[in-house]
Design a protein around this nucleic acid. Sequence first.
DNA 1: GATTGGCGGGG
DNA 2: GTGTACGCCAATC
Length: 828
Amino acid sequence: MAAVKFHMLDITYKIVGDGVVILIFGKTDDGKRICLMDDSFEPYFYVLPKKKEDIEKLRPAIESVKISRDDYNFFVKRTEVLKRKLNGRLADVIKVTVNNPKAVPPMREEIAKKPGVQGIYEADILFVRRYLIDRKLTPLTTWEVEGEFINFRSRVSVLKAAKITQLSDDVAENLRVLAIDLETYSATREIMPTENPILMVSFYGTESLNNSKSRIFRKVITYKKFNTDKDYIEFVGGEAELIMRFKEVIDEFKPDVIVGYNSDSFDMPYLRTRANKHRIELDIGLDFSSLRMSKGQAEHAYIPGIAHVDIYRFIRNTMPTMLKTDTLDLDSVARELLGEGKAEADVSELATTWDRHPEKLEQYCEYNLKDSELAFGLFRSLFLNMAEMVKIVGLSLFDVTRMTFSQLVEWFLIKQTPLYEEIVPNKPEHADVKERITKTYQGGFVVEPKPGLYDDIAVFDFRSLYPSIIASHNISPSTLNCSCCEDKAKKVPLEGKNYWFCEKKKGFISQVIEELITRRMRISEIIKKEKEENKLLRARSQTVKILANAFYGYLGFYAARWYSLESAQSVTAWGRFHINKVIEKAQKEGFNVLYGDTDSVFLSLKGRSQKDALKFVEAINMELPGVMELELEEFYPKGIFVSAKIGEAGAKKKYALLNEHGAIKIRGFEMVRRNWSPIAREVQENVISIILREGDVEKAFNYVRKTMKELEQKKVPVEKVTIFTQIQKGLDDYENVGPHVAAAKRMLAKGYPMVAGSLVRYIVVQGKGKISDRVKLPEEVQEGEYDDQYYINNQIIPSVDRIFEVLGYSKEALLESKDQSKLGTFFK
DNA sequence: GATTGGCGGGG
DNA sequence: GTGTACGCCAATC
């Protein structure tokens, strides 16, 4: 018998004969990669009978179900009767254990048809997740494993586990992490993996993540020869050889984690497409299986045995509100989190350089390597946060880094259910989702932004508002309007509704969130006591807080298993009650409340110091009950507020703030993106910058006026009015012919292949009729051949009109200003 | 006014 | 893989 300390990195399963084995890949405390094999876990689900008396009739009927499908024999191994809680009520349920995870969906259908069956539960809990939850095993942390090494096809030794126990909370220290990045041939902005080869691949990694002295591994593989003294550049014979070397490097480096930036939807699928083209198997999985692309709405690239982390996905899912940057491209994110951006190189010139000036390729190799280095850096700087999320939610690094907040909350709740003997509610039926999606309810309290340009703004955040409300008012689907407290319970301050929550028994959700809150309080206590900064505890505290904050949104999320409109309504009702108190106090203190939304308040300091603002927060916090806390987010020397929907109630936030370091934080202006013309993007960026950095509204106005005039005089180059859009499906599948579809049809007529993913470039030209009747391709237009009025009215004006509107210039003013003679009246 | 379709990241 | 992405916005119907 061997006994090892083990850290899990990935988990999967394999069908063996009529049964199933769990395969757990990871590494031992002394750095060896191994695989645990566990054949002692079986798939199961629950059947809820209509009547308790039906149970003994139902059991034999269920036990006799047998299904044969795709060479598999599916059968029921046994049934048991258990007591479980469903929506707060105790019920007798039948636990049905089957032989194969793939048996569950057909079994579910078959058994649901039987008379006496009320419902089937937990038949959609993925097998490996079920394993981790039931065995109380946490990925990445330290397990103790006893067993014997066996022969089993795998790149690493396989230990047949006789006993696995959770030993401690300590995360693996010595991870081998390898970041990768591709550069590909692309003469246009279009990305076409079937047409264009990979030109380079870079690697940046370490043999031990926590050891700063550990050797750094750097490599760029490419296949066009040029003179260089960079020893990390390796030349191969062509693309096929590049892919073969890619596989070898992975095999030799033996990474525990592979990192990329947007690698789920770019690098990995690109590699796979190119490998297919060369008939190369991308069998880098530790069980010798291939890179697997799973396709839902979002693609995931899964490598059995290795934790592939797409760091962009993690950031996008869990961090955008915490970041100052509004765009999540690698350069912006790395600048903010690592303090350095991408290397200098014009990637749109790579294809030309490759074809005509290979001697200049070295800078592209440096650029390529830098991208890997940044992805690696982001992984290193966020690993604590990811690991904490893994520890709380209890699923693999791969899963956790790809989940949205609603999914994280849901799986966190699912993990708690065995402790409370709760049954996991089913996902809503399609019809329920459709109905729920239409339901709206009153949200947070909003003080309409007072549009304008302001100096010295202090922003306060009420971050723990909703979690503390859920805990202290016992808000849960199961405690809503209980029969035991109807007369005595405190009523939710919500006009027209008579809601209350049980004051005798804790609800599942409120109890779970209360434990999260107290856990965070304990962590905060320790942090306060310790003199030195404890990064681990800070990450833990932050992660708990983020998760707790997501509970409210989850309760009102249409696809949630524990959806409860009434609960969500009650949370916001109590929230409005509390924020109103803060606003009243701020006004009493003499601050100018510029804007408030749900859990945040923007105060203008004019005439008062930052110290006064800090004192104000302190005073508020003294009076707040329990865990509730108001925090200072940041001071901003300058900011502009725009109401997105002028005159309407519930205006959405739209503002740009300049912080003390000169960085601009923009919220709500993100509409000007790819499918807008470059000229519109450029104008919006420059206008915001001139107004905030130079404080010169007139200059910004003149700049826009000048640009519109240039448009009218046809001086703007065609590429700046060319709109890029991607075709998402076959042209015949479009019901509506939008401008991009019209352009695509023109391209098709000219013999360009137009499939899902094809990029369309078009220019709107003058003429009559719908916009889609007036699109032309870049090759069809002369310089200056564009509809200046379209670009002025549909591109330039919408990108800046709100900004000018709040500064006293109406849309009409912008338009009229084209007439020189009237200009004088706008500047007094 | 309601519905449809594209966007993000990546070269 | 016992599978669930999301929220915003313009153009068209």
